[in-house]
Design a protein around this nucleic acid. Structure first.
Lengths: 345, 345
DNA sequence: TTTTAGCACTCAAACGTCACAAGTGCTAAG
DNA sequence: CTTAGCACTTGTGACGTTTGAGTGCTAAAA
């Protein structure tokens, strides 16, 4: 249990250290704090905080820096999100203000904006597609042997893929297959479609194609891709700013991490309505030891929920970052609702 | 003009320095060289080479390192490509052996292979499309408002893009436009198509659509993208290995350079049948000061020529790298000819 | 004329010493 | 409970020394 004064001191330690990067000592704190106590008193309190594992020393006679637990306590109990700076508001307005023709453009642009605002690396994830429905399927013959499969969902997402047909398949056959798919599967959610694809569809298709496996593979492929969570990353290069003393190896593993959709999904974790902060030492991945991750969901009502996140050094100004993430999720939700309203009408 | 012995010494200096990274002195050279002379003699020769600007000292009493001009002389006159290591041959065979369904897959995979072989960053560029021809165009209505434009070339490339039609356009109108395009433009090379698009096509289309601008934009867009040179990059992260003392800024500019197609095209320069080496100081871009670029074309007969390149530190083992690039261009050409043979038949 | 041994000289890198500044813990008095 | 005072610790940076690799030059040898 911390006293009021200890909280005040812990808050000051975190704020000072995240701003300057220098371990903070008792004298500095005594000057900074609103209360009037001597540095010796602060020293006693610092010792108490260290006792509880909230702060630590870099060497036996250094000032204090927050420990992982200290950051945790700070973000859980002591921090309060900063309001946006006027300048930041401008940036959001102007970058998100234009006309977009695809959801993906908005989401991808958002990653860029977030990374610009924070000067960290940002991730955005479009609203989950689990409950979007198949609204159409086409097979378009392109030439001698190539066919393009196109899949459209009711949320306006389009996924396509070209493939080779190795045997001679007639246009009539293709049309029959397309009609079958559209009759049987349109209107179902994507997971439902995937399920049906395992069940009765193969037999029905066998009426029109002698070897339906190849086709089913393609269809399953493009379907999975459509249903897959789609990540966008902004400000990749900003990671370079925080690689202490050019530790190339950990940088490399960091980059391979953020380029793998699965891994990132794993790290981001489950969506929750609150803005969540993960401190480096709390994350399983070793490459993230010196980083913190702030994640938040945004809510587009019946169109589902998406996620935004920023990845920066553990030593980041949390109040400002929480302010940015909090405000941006709202703006993004608004923008997307606008977009859907236009698209649905 | 260099004497035989001077050439031998320069070659030894470059080879030793590219291997060890340490400035090389007269004693080391005396031991290494096949001829039997004292270090003092070598010192005299080194002074002569320095006189000519081919080598230099890092400080007044250090060993010698090759200058930009020294590297140039070395690659122009002294180096001879190493034969591939058996291991490298295996890597190429197994990575390029499988079945590919798109040219782009082969080219992109090639960038990865090259970067693995060299542990540098590799670029690959698919055979130029300037003389490939438009072989088909489709407009596929996807839903209330969305339409997908698909363009196919005779080399099997497919390019597509979805767009919104803002007014109510009937399926008949779309079909008429598609028929017009296919009648008038199929069989022409892509540059020819682009040219016609500026000339008489707009008027003809105006017969079917009241405001053809939007459509022409889309068509031009997807056409340009199809005709555009397409780069693939492999081993991006390897650049991190050569950033001396974590010079974050130059690293960043390096990365933004290689992510911009236009800039890269610029740096790679014009194709030439010989394998070409550009030494850091010869390149205009400052971020490349400490790098060298080896580029080579590969030739797929009537299907045009493409390019491969590797970017590594100026201090790279040129003989080995030239061997790899030389061998790989052959393998790639063979593979592509195989691919086209299958596709064309 | 070319090569070589010898020698004085240069410089980076490694190392130890020293003083300094910032900070701590502890004690004893307020 | 707070604070002044003090001894103690440690990173940092300045400075001088030593060491080793390498150079240029000179004069003798080939």
């Amino acid at each position: 249990m911390l006293s009021e004064r200890q909280m005040m001191i812990l808050r000051a330690v975190v704020r000072d250290f995240t701003n300057t990067g220098v371990p903070v000592g008792s004298k500095t704190l005594a000057k900074q704090l609103p209360i009037h106590v001597s540095s010796a008193t602060i020293r006693n309190e610092l010792a108490a905080l260290e006792e509880q594992g909230l702060i630590e020393k870099t060497h036996s006679s250094s000032g204090r820096i927050p420990s992982g637990e200290g950051y945790r306590y700070y973000v859980d109990h002591l921090v309060k999100p900063d309001p946006l700076r006027p300048n930041d508001i401008d940036v959001i307005q102007s970058s998100l203000g234009g006309d977009f023709h695809k959801i993906d453009e908005i989401i991808s642009q958002s990653a860029t904006i977030l990374s610009n605002l924070t000067s960290y690396t940002a991730f955005t994830l479009k609203p989950e597609l689990k409950n979007s429905r198949l609204s159409g399927f086409r097979l378009v013959p392109l030439g001698k042997r190539q066919v393009m499969a196109i899949l459209v969902t009711d949320s306006g997402d389009v996924e396509n893929q070209t493939f080779d047909v190795n045997e001679t398949v007639t246009g009539d056959q293709l049309e029959a297959v397309v009609r079958l798919i559209n009759d049987q599967l349109v209107g179902l959610t994507l997971p439902e479609v995937l399920q049906k694809l395992q069940a009765d569809i193969p037999m029905k298709i066998a009426n029109y194609l002698q070897s339906p496996e190849g086709f089913l593979d393609i269809f399953g492929d493009v379907l999975t891709r459509a249903a897959q969570e789609r990540f966008y990353v902004g400000g990749r290069l900003n990671l370079l700013n925080f690689s202490q003393d050019s530790d190339v190896d950990s940088l490399k593993s960091l980059y391979s991490l953020i380029d793998k959709t699965d891994d990132i999904a794993n790290v981001l974790g489950q969506p929750s309505d609150k803005i969540s902060v993960q401190i480096g030492n709390e994350m399983t991945n070793d490459a993230l030891r010196n980083f913190s991750l702030i994640t938040a969901t945004y809510d587009v009502n019946q169109h589902g929920k998406g996620m935004i996140a920023i990845l920066g050094p553990t030593r980041m100004p949390y109040s400002r970052m929480l302010g940015i993430v909090g405000a941006f999720r709202e703006e993004l939700a608004k923008k997307l609702l606008d977009y859907y309203r236009f698209y649905d009408e």
